[in-house]
């Protein structure tokens, strides 16, 4: 596009400056504005007043005022957090029950320890001394083979036990013999 064309367009558009508004437009506009302002004042709802004041408040927040407002908000947040119930210490019903128990007074010299339930299943039997453990294993085996209780007392105290224990009630043949029986025979 050439420069003269641009000027021609500009000159043509400049003619629109001669378009003028209707006679008395300004007076009419001011009159209508006054009416409108009065009507707005009369009919202004509480909501719009609050909104406008909030907008004014935020618009005037600059520098130190903004810092002050931020400090107030942070302060309120801290107070709110402190007033709230301590959610980190709240536990399940068992813990609540334990909490109740632990509140009970104990005789002097006693100490209430919290139950360790976390590894109780895995550690079952491991806490026994090695001797007791070796005595218990035949008992458990006998339960396994018999499907019911075997001669637990004897086996439990017979350290020379060989082979799986069999209950006398089901002894139908000389499949197994205990050493003491053989001796007696």
């Amino acid at each position: 596009m050439t420069e003269p064309d641009d000027n021609q367009i500009s000159r043509l558009l400049a003619l629109k400056r001669y378009e003028r508004m209707p006679e008395g437009f300004e007076d009419q506009l001011i009159h209508q504005l006054h009416l409108r302002q009065r009507t707005e004042l009369m009919n202004q709802s509480v909501r719009s007043i609050v909104l406008e004041r909030l907008q004014d408040f935020w618009a005037t927040l600059t520098g130190p005022r903004l810092a002050l407002a931020a400090a107030v908000v942070v302060g309120l947040a801290i107070v709110a957090v402190k007033l709230m119930p301590d959610s980190h210490n709240s536990r399940g019903s068992d813990d609540l029950a334990w909490g109740k128990l632990s509140d009970q007074p104990l005789p002097p010299g006693f100490e209430m320890l919290p139950p360790d339930v976390t590894n109780s299943a895995a550690n079952f039997g491991n806490s026994l001394p090695p001797d007791e453990s070796s005595k218990l294993s035949p008992l458990l085996l006998s339960k396994h083979f018999e499907g019911s209780y075997a001669d637990e007392l004897r086996d439990a105290f017979n350290s020379e036990f060989v082979g799986p224990p069999v209950s006398r009630r089901f002894e139908v043949g000389p499949m197994f013999r205990f050493e003491d029986e053989e001796e007696s025979k």
């Binding site: 000159r11 378009e19 003028r20």
Partner: peptide, 17 residues
Amino acid sequence: LDDVDSGIQNDPDFIKA
């Protein structure tokens, strides 16, 4: 359309155009 100011008749650009 708005009223056109009669001053446009004396505008040099308008006369030239």
